[in-house]
């Protein structure tokens, strides 16, 4: 089972650590956006990727559960921005940009920066199965303790 960047928005403290780290790792431009309500938004590497469908140059490619972006093939047409349901692709003047799961870091055996740096553990780089298992456990415990949910 592959690893993915997974988000637990209830943990996000809107500290922007992921944005600052991502920008540093990607030449000053962050591929993740922290929204004021406390949710980091980044490319979800969809299985049915709408962006892929509109890209006509092969700049977007699906491989090993990832949506990979090849900047050198991008024309900057902005069609993928208009196709992405989550607004997770940006336009840097003349070319698109999006999360590459820190491919340069993974080549060195390192985790994506956002998952590693998140002080609150809101972003993790893990298997979906482990992640859901843990989340269900926590939800069950919280229910058993009789705590209200406070999702604001």
């Amino acid at each position: 089972m592959g690893y993915e960047v997974l988000v637990r928005p209830e943990r996000c403290i809107s500290c922007y650590a992921c944005e600052v780290a991502c920008a540093r790792e990607h030449g000053g431009l962050s591929n993740v956006w922290v929204l004021p309500q406390g949710v980091p938004i980044l490319c979800r590497h969809c299985q049915n990727a709408a962006c892929l469908e509109v890209c006509y140059t092969g700049a977007l490619e699906q491989r090993d559960g990832e949506v990979i972006f090849h900047r050198e093939k991008c024309t900057g047409c902005e069609l993928c921005l208009l196709a992405c349901p989550f607004g997770a692709i940006g336009l840097d003047g003349k070319r698109a940009y999006k999360c590459d799961l820190c491919s340069h870091r993974r080549q060195e055996g390192l985790m994506p920066a956002c998952a590693l740096t998140c002080p609150a553990g809101a972003i993790s780089y893990s298997c979906v199965a482990d992640f859901s298992h843990r989340k269900r456990g926590i939800a069950g415990l919280s229910w058993a303790m009789g705590y209200e949910r406070r999702g604001k």
Partner: peptide
């Protein structure tokens, strides 16, 4: 899609709100 009339920034915003509600 129901978000077809939204600009990318507002889609970001909407998906964030959606996630927050789901908590």
């Amino acid at each position: 899609p129901d978000w077809k009339g939204l600009c990318p920034e507002c889609r970001r915003e909407e998906s964030a709100s959606g996630l927050r509600v789901a908590i």
